[in-house]
Amino acid sequence: MTDVQIIVRLDVMLAMRKTKSRDLAQAVGITEQNISLLKSGKVKGIRFDTLAKICAVLDCQPGDLLEAVLVE
């Protein structure tokens, strides 16, 4: 089976929406540090309610934030 890795594209979406991490953190109700971890992909997972809040704030779909890429 091919290995697939989930890549977080939050930084791209933040740039597209011209939103700062601090503002997103405030709107979602999580720490800036967690947003930073999310952007760098250093988290094991994201809760559905966090994902829903981010989608609501950035006016996007989960697929805009997460991408499955093949791993060599």
Binding site: I30, N34, L37, I46, R47
Partner: peptide, 10 residues
């Protein structure tokens, strides 16, 4: 272990 995993979720 479950709690540690839960803590690593955002």
């Amino acid at each position: 272990e479950a709690a540690a995993e839960n803590r690593s979720f955002v």
